[in-house]
Nucleic acid binder design. Structure first.
Lengths: 335, 335
DNA sequence: ACAAAAAATTTGCGCGCGTAAAATTTCAGG
DNA sequence: CCTGAAATTTTACGCGCGCAAATTTTTTGT
């Protein structure tokens, strides 16, 4: 950079200024630098830059499980927005492991990121670690809320999801039973459960939640095995099964197929199956899955937006905020 | 670090050595450092480290489209291996865009990574850029091969995939027609096509490949629309459809369902549908998808292994190597 | 037990840049 | 044309560390 500054005929700090904000130098010097830039090609060393800057231009993005299409889609969306805003997103997946999440937060901390978008593991997050992290680094929590942690949470209104679906299902047929994992990796499951119970009671029905065994993120498999087991134990014909999420539902659809049960709303079907999430591939199941979808665009937009707002005001002021987005019912053929 | 070294009673460079490799200092000094570490908590500044090291401990991982479950799965696998080997993987997705891939490679270049695992866009990669990158940075290409670029490629033997499947399909029923995209985002499609034609001819059948319109990475949708169109144009009953990949097949399954065609090997089915890839969710389709699966474990293991080998020998020596893994037939119910 | 070799540690140096303060240039107003 | 404030550029310094060479300590061979 020293040499490059010489070649362009200005001092090194001026060149430094230029790279931080080309508009901060006089038009004439800017022209000189840009001209030299074309002739000598030079790229500032990001490590030297980041070492000296108090805050970098990096934005950390952490999701609990990147091989889940829902998070893959959200991450893709968020990444694009960060890039467009002139930041360099740095993507991490906790792979469902608490230890990794802690490590990632430590790494992130040392990266001095301008901000972090964190979808925590939730139930299996280390509360104290996440809490302290949010206190030190401008962080927007998304997808999974953790009570009283961080300044802001952006996500979906999970009870509303279930409520919406329950109302629809009750209006159009048999009240649903609720299928969920015994130990769901994602804490939203709890809220969906609560939403289910509330909605059923509001409508004058008796809620019935079925817990199926299994843990981890292989949700389709859990749904499949649990579905098989349920079908063998109980005649599901005429009934309606609302799954805690689309991936479980996909597994249940597979189980129904295997057990020769026709799923759908048509008169010659045996039962209805519905999911929650608006999984990217949910419209290609057989039959296409009726579900409540997140507003992916809105959530990722708002998440990024709120982070930028948080980054600007350096004071960790004010009340904790929660921005919840409602889901939209996708009526398809499975229920 | 200066202060910390004082507190632990050794010189700063010794502490530096300790952090680079705890085994490189004497047992007694190591104990002193670790003791001090517990009392004063100190983390080296990664930026300062990376600025001064000629090569960092970073390993770049680039995939063309992270929201594709296949890449998500591979990336997850690879990341884990890198972490276990003591490196910090840095994950990037090109999101299917050439411009982004170029940017990512530029970023990566400035990150001085110890090595890079690159699954290029393929057809729409900028040949010159990728080629030069592989020349400058130890890089293992995977998934998509680019002729004569880089020192090594690790991937699947695509012609063998198709060949294996065609043989199976011909042995057990009607010879398949081949369904593929007009403009597939992934170059492996070409090899699968070639493998299909070769296998069919070898078996004495007339190959027939059907190109369906569409581009980009929304493969299920492309398969779905293309499937619908095909079904409307032609009676598929009694036939066998081999799709260029599982995601297309999932779309085709949806199309069949919608058009009231029963897919499967059972006698009361209308047609058979098969895919290629061993998509993570392919066993949960209705019916479960018959496919040829990549050896995910072996590929990711080998990919990482070869990178480490490449990193050790600094000379960019020798012939270009290609490590191809055979696929395994997964006989399920769809074909 | 002693010299030579090997291993570990320390000294000295510089990496490439941001940033505050000082020096310079530019520009408006009279 | 001159003065002073504002905008811009330069000077001076230090960030936190890796690395090579020099020094010290430990190990090895006889």
């Amino acid at each position: 950079m020293e040499k490059f500054a010489e070649l362009s005929g200005v001092s090194r700090p001026t060149v430094s200024k230029y790279f931080n904000d080309p508009a901060s130098v006089r038009q004439s010097t800017r022209a000189r630098i840009e001209e030299a830039l074309e002739r000598y090609e030079y790229t500032p060393n990001i490590y030297a830059i980041n070492q000296n800057r108090r805050l970098t231009k990096t934005i950390g993005v952490v999701v609990p499980y990147l091989a889940d299409p829902y998070f893959a889609e959200i991450a893709r969306n968020i990444e694009t927005r960060c890039i467009d805003a002139g930041f360099s997103p740095s993507l991490f997946s906790s792979h469902g492991r608490q230890g990794l999440e802690i490590e990632i937060l430590a790494t992130l901390r040392s990266m001095k990121p301008a901000g972090v978008l964190l979808a925590p593991l939730g139930r299996s997050s280390n509360y104290a670690v996440v809490e302290q992290f949010c206190r030190d680094v401008p962080t927007v929590l998304f997808d999974s809320n953790i009570d009283n942690v961080g300044n802001i949470f952006v996500g979906s209104d999970n009870p509303q999801f279930t409520s919406l679906m329950v109302e629809y299902l009750c209006r159009t047929g048999e009240p649903p039973l609720f299928l969920e994992m015994e130990a769901p990796p994602n804490p939203n499951a709890r809220k969906r459960h609560a939403g289910y119970v509330a909605a059923m009671e509001r409508l004058g029905h008796t809620p019935r939640a079925v817990q199926i065994p299994g843990e981890g993120w292989a949700l389709e498999e859990v749904g499949h095995l649990g579905g098989i087991e349920l079908i063998e134990k109980e005649d599901l014909r005429g009934k309606t099964v609302l799954c805690s999420n689309d991936r479980l539902a996909i597994g249940v659809l597979a189980a129904c197929y295997q057990k020769n049960l026709r799923v759908g709303i048509s008169t010659n079907s045996d039962l209805r199956v519905a999911g929650l999430d608006g999984h990217p591939f949910s419209s290609f199941t057989c039959p296409p899955l009726t579900t409540v979808t997140h507003d992916y665009e809105a959530i990722s937009e708002r998440t990024v937006e709120e982070l930028f707002r948080l980054m600007e005001r350096d004071s960790p002021q004010g009340d904790r905020e929660e921005k919840l987005f409602e889901g939209k019912l996708l009526m398809r053929e499975s229920a």
